[in-house]
């Protein structure tokens, strides 16, 4: 049952009854609501008819094989794809009820509210302090010198990095270890007080110990933030997330509570993927 041809037939069947599994049967408040979202690069369709409701103060994981569209979908949530020329979006993404693709939306303000951490850590080649302070300064949130310092400390504490770097805030961020750099990027995103945090495979380039620290951090942060995390590592999804969405060939195949997704998925393809039969 796991050969590609069979799976494709299964997908065809899925497409016709897709809405069935696109939101878990729970009655919770909704933070992000995507509605029949299509996305294309030039003439290539990358996402087809994505509808999903993401809940606040939980961790939602996007899983799926490479090229399935999970990162692309993540990047539509803060309109990061806007900076790539030739992209087109149809459909709606509502955040707290407002369509972020609607008229009059300020992309820059949106991105402050929806923070993002990337697959490869990308600290600016500046000091640790300036990395955190940058977002505050450009958003006019810097305040006085001591307020700024306070906010930087708070962010570093939230990212569980303060104790490691408090004595060398003025040294270059590039001198930190890979795991520290990634936590710095998380701290940098938190500093501008977003309420949603998007994480695009944040631990894929890190060693197991650094990965564990990021996962613990994610667990702590969900009390305050809505977190969406893309991962190709299914154990990681199972460990950190409350809800999981499985993407395949540009479609959302199944979305449910994480425990259910990993023990009793409704779709055969999902089962094949989470049990490691392909991907």
């Amino acid at each position: 049952m796991s050969d590609p041809a069979t799976r494709l037939t299964a997908l065809g069947a899925l497409a016709s009854r897709s809405s069935q599994h696109q939101h878990p049967p729970v009655d919770r408040p909704v933070k992000i609501h995507a509605e029949s979202l299509n996305f294309s690069y030039g003439s290539t369709r990358a996402l087809t008819d994505i509808s999903i409701r993401i809940h606040p103060n939980v961790v939602t994981a996007f899983i799926g094989p490479s090229g399935c569209g999970k990162s692309t979908f993540l990047r539509t949530l803060n309109r990061m794809n806007d900076i790539i020329p030739g992209t087109r979006v149809e459909g709606k993404v509502l955040i707290d009820g407002t369509d972020i693709y609607g008229p009059g939306i300020d992309v820059v303000a949106l991105r402050r509210r929806v923070g993002m951490v990337f697959q490869k850590s990308n600290p600016f080649p500046k000091s640790i302090f300036d990395n955190i302070a940058y977002g505050l300064r450009i958003n006019g949130m810097a305040g006085t010198r001591s307020e700024l310092a306070e906010r930087v400390e708070e962010s570093l504490r939230q990212a569980a990095l303060w104790d490691e770097v408090k004595d060398r805030l003025q040294t270059s961020a590039l001198a930190m270890s890979g795991g520290q750099q990634q936590r710095l990027c998380i701290a940098r995103a938190l500093a501008v007080r977003p309420d949603i945090l998007l994480m695009d495979e944040p631990a894929s380039a890190l060693d197991p110990i650094a990965t564990q620290r990021i996962e613990e951090l994610v667990y702590d942060l969900k009390k305050t933030y809505t977190i969406v995390i893309v991962t190709h590592n299914m154990q990681q999804a199972a460990r950190v997330s409350d809800f999981t969405a499985f993407f395949w060939l540009g479609r959302l195949v199944e979305y449910d509570r994480t425990d259910k997704m990993f023990t009793a998925p409704a779709e055969k393809v999902t089962e094949d993927y989470v049990t490691g039969r392909f991907g």
Binding site: M80, K120, N122, F124
Partner: peptide, 11 residues
Amino acid sequence: SIREGSYALGA
């Protein structure tokens, strides 16, 4: 990636 990091902070 530097540009992306900056845009993602609302720059």
